[in-house]
Write a protein that binds this DNA or RNA. Structure first.
Length: 298
DNA sequence: AGCGTCACCCGGACGC
DNA sequence: TGCGTCCGGGTGACGC
């Protein structure tokens, strides 16, 4: 029934010698880039101010809350008022309630003009009053959509926003020292800090010159400040490049050309020339420079 | 309670 | 051609 008119992706999977035979999820910079594009409009008009006529749901398990039937009924005739981001969630404030979308591994959201050919992985389509369509495509089907009166049911569990002014080195210090966890999985824990995934965690630790296996309570204040700065540097660099485009969907960002460690195993460290290593930490591929991020002292 | 580990969801790409 | 394996984020089960 659906015709695949999606052109094959350019070969962007072997940029650094390491083969990217898998997708990975959009993180804070990618989600922020999508939010900004929808908010401002690009080739299409801004999403705020648009009203939803109806919705098509091709993969009902995407709808996390409420039930699919209730979702379908409640989303009708809703007006988009704001598009924001919290952690890796897109937050759509409506005239009644809030819709949250988590893209997980392979999700993407685009606002397209009328009669745009269907994409192979379009799963949920919001038909708007002016006949533009907001399309949620998701090859891996791991994405989640919520429609809530109180978005804090979901967003309330999230840790601080790393780019907020309220996120200071001291806040980070108190959170790190309260725990006794390995840094890499702790930074990816969305209740500890919101928005970091595998790529930006590895990049942040490299900027901070910290080994991914360090214990959270072993850091001194200088190291904590370096980590705070590293997190912000990695995210800011990603944002400046409109995120990375090594997913199933090309988003226009080009940060993948600027990774310091992610996907660069076997290649020389840009600071010292040492071969970048790849290890598994908490079931996740983890890239680091054994010289620059050397001391593990657990 | 806190922490680590593992299976699961899913499907494209790869090795054999 | 086809099967098994791998990968990823988040969740939930389980064990220490």
């Amino acid at each position: 029934m659906l015709v695949d008119l999606t052109p094959p992706l350019p070969s962007i999977y072997s940029l650094h010698g390491e083969l990217y035979n898998h997708p990975h999820m959009p993180e804070l910079p990618e989600v922020e880039t999508i939010a900004q594009t929808l908010r401002r409009g690009n080739d299409s008009p801004p999403l705020p101010g648009q009203r939803i006529k109806r919705v098509t749901i091709r993969w009902p398990r995407h709808i996390a809350m409420p039930s699919v039937t209730t979702f379908r009924r409640r989303i009708r005739d809703r007006l988009f008022s704001e598009v924001n981001r919290r952690g890796k969630y897109l937050v759509f404030a409506l005239d009644r309630g809030t819709m949250l979308i988590h893209l997980r591994m392979s999700g993407d959201l685009v606002l397209v003009p009328p009669d745009t050919p269907a994409g192979r992985y379009d799963r949920t389509v919001f038909y708007l009053e002016d006949d533009h369509e907001l399309r949620f495509s998701d090859a891996r089907k791991f994405g989640k959509i919520f429609l809530l009166d109180d978005p804090d049911i979901v967003l309330g569990k999230l840790g601080p926003e790393p780019l907020d002014a309220s996120f200071t080195p001291l806040i980070l210090a108190s959170r790190l020292l309260k725990r006794r966890r390995i840094l890499k999985p702790l930074l990816m824990d969305q209740t500890f800090i919101a928005g970091l995934g595998n790529i930006y965690t590895d990049e942040a630790l490299y900027h901070a010159r910290l080994h991914p296996l360090r214990r959270s309570d072993s850091l001194d204040m200088n190291e904590i400040t370096a980590l705070w700065q590293g997190i912000r540097d990695a995210l800011t660099l990603g944002l400046r490049h409109s995120g990375a485009s090594i997913d199933w969907v090309y988003r226009g960002g080009d940060f993948q050309h600027h990774f310091r460690v992610y996907g660069r195993s076997g290649e020389p460290c840009l600071k010292c020339g040492t071969s970048i290593e790849r290890i598994i930490v908490g079931q996740r591929g983890t890239h680091f420079c054994p010289t620059c991020q050397g001391e593990v002292n657990v």
